[in-house]
Each structure stands twice: as structure tokens, then as C-alpha cells.
Nucleic acid binder design. Structure first.
Lengths: 141, 141
DNA sequence: GCGCGCATCACCCGAAAGTATGATTTAGCG
DNA sequence: CGCTAAATCATACTTTCGGGTGATGCGCGC
């Protein structure tokens, strides 16, 4: 910070010196005051922009990472069917097999079959493990 | 954007006019060129800073949602002990009670007791439900 | 010291979850 | 039209979970 202020003053001084030199060399009295002012204004505006961006914390907007999206490809590579995925979703919500069966209007045995297939395809032995794996590979949010 | 450029030009013109007026009014010839330059430099630097901050887009950064942090308060309000929380963590990893018992070098029955207490405190009936709840209230990432 | 919370463990029992196997129906596809 | 994959359900069996109860030891604070 101190260094920046120092550099600022230094460049200001340098600019003035440069202009003074110009003044003597090329009879700059012929140049109008407006030209001077404009030049300096533009230069220091540019400097201001640069300094402002450099010195202030970058504005960052935190976006809640909604990376997840339904990826049919991944399901296909694992051979997981639509119905099995539905079961997986409800499992992840913490529902029991019976509750899942009631939700999907099928029998408990059907859910057991689906879940067994899921465990095979997700290489897991328990529902909690299956859920964890599914989240790891992005099947579930 | 166009409006901004227009305003910029306008303020520049206004400044020059103001200085010209000063020149006639107070015999500003006595003022040295350095004073002019410095004044303009400072003013336009300030303008540049303002313009730079105003015009740049805030960066949108995808934050990997590290909202989670170990919150002892929440654990206390629910009355969940350290050991119970350890069990909860391993549960969420998909481990069985037996595996958790082996990991923590205690007996299966101990884990059962801990998990039962957890279900009470998390108001759940199954481990999957407990995990889901724990994630909802920020106990687990 | 006494009570309390925590951690530990045990036993029993019923419910839920998971395994294995087989059967039926249906929709899609070559 | 026949084949196949998906979805459905069943029956039987094993394992895991979860509830209930009770017990022991340890550290901490009143």
C-alpha cells in the first residue's frame, strides 16, 4: 500500500517533469491548456481504473454450486434403469423399503429386487453404502 | 455504457470551464502549472477508481459449498456427544454397525446403543433417515 | 461422597434389509 | 414374430438393524 502511494507520487512527478520538458523543447505554449488537461485527465483516469481494480478486493459473488444435473449417460454406463433410479432417490431420502413400495405403488418384494440390483450395479452391500457411492459419482445431489 | 462516456466527457468539459473561469477571476496565471496538473490528476484518478469499480462485472465464483463446518453448538443443542457424532460420520460413509465397531475398537452392542441414541436425538427411525436429517441441519457435509 | 452424563457391553426379540431363485407380463427392437 | 430387457411379484432364508432393558466403570461438579 505504501509502495503504491509512493509509485503514484513518483509517476505524477515524472509526468510533470515530462510536460515541463516538452514545454521548453517544442514551444508548447502554442498548445492550448485544454490539450494538457485532456491528456492528463485520460492518463489519470486510466491509472485510477487500474489502481482501483488492483487495490480493492475482487468482487466475488458466491454461487451455490448447483453442479448436479441428471446425467443419463452415467446411468446407462452402470446399467441402472429408470425405476431403479427412482428407488435410489427415495432410499437417499431415508425411506424404508416398505415406504418406497407404497410411494411407487408396488410390492415390497419388487423394491427388494430393485435395491438388490442397485447394490450389484453400485458395488455395495448396504443401502447407506449405495447412497454414498451414488453421491460420489454424481448420481445424486 | 454510452451514458457513462457521455458523463465522462461532460465532467471533463465542466472541469476545464471551471478552471478557465478561475484563470480569469483570480489571476490564476500566478498559479503554477504543477498545481493544475496535480489537481486534475487527483480528481481523475479518483474518477478512474470509481469508474473502474462501477463498470467491472463482479466475478461469479463457483464456491465448492464449504458451508459446512463443525458446529459444536448444534451438537450441544441436540445433546449429541463426541462418540455419537463419530458413529454418525461412519454411518454416513456407508459402514455397517459391525464395521463401525471394528473401526472404533468397541463392541457391536456399543455401536447399537450409540446409534439408538442418535436416532432418538435426530428424531429418526432408520440410519438412512438419520443421515439425511443430519445433512439437512448441517451436522454432516 | 453422591449424582449425572458418557461410554461401554450384554442379551433378547422382532422388524427390516438383503440374498437367492424363479415366474409372469409387457414394451421395444431387429 | 420372436427375442430381450425391464418391471413386477413371490417364497424362503440369512443377516443386519433397531428397541428394550439392565449393568459397569469413569470423570466431573455440587
Amino acid at each position: 500500500m505504501k509502495r503504491t502511494i509512493f509509485l503514484y507520487g513518483l509517476s505524477l512527478a515524472a509526468l510533470i517533469v515530462a510536460l515541463k520538458l516538452l514545454e521548453f523543447r517544442f514551444m508548447v505554449h502554442s498548445l492550448s491548456l485544454e490539450i494538457y488537461l485532456s491528456t492528463i485527465a485520460v492518463l489519470f483516469t486510466a491509472f485510477g481504473v487500474w489502481a482501483g481494480l488492483k487495490l480493492t478486493r475482487p468482487k466475488t459473488v458466491l454461487v451455490p454450486q448447483t453442479t448436479y444435473q441428471f446425467d443419463t449417460k452415467r446411468l446407462e454406463t452402470l446399467g441402472i434403469s429408470k425405476r431403479e433410479y427412482e428407488v435410489l432417490e427415495l432410499m437417499a431420502k431415508g425411506l424404508s423399503n416398505q415406504e418406497i413400495a407404497d410411494t411407487l405403488f408396488v410390492s415390497l418384494n419388487t423394491i427388494k429386487t430393485h435395491s438388490s440390483n442397485l447394490f450389484l450395479k453400485l458395488d455395495s452391500k448396504r443401502r447407506t453404502q449405495a447412497i454414498q457411492r451414488a453421491k460420489e459419482i454424481g448420481l445424486l445431489p
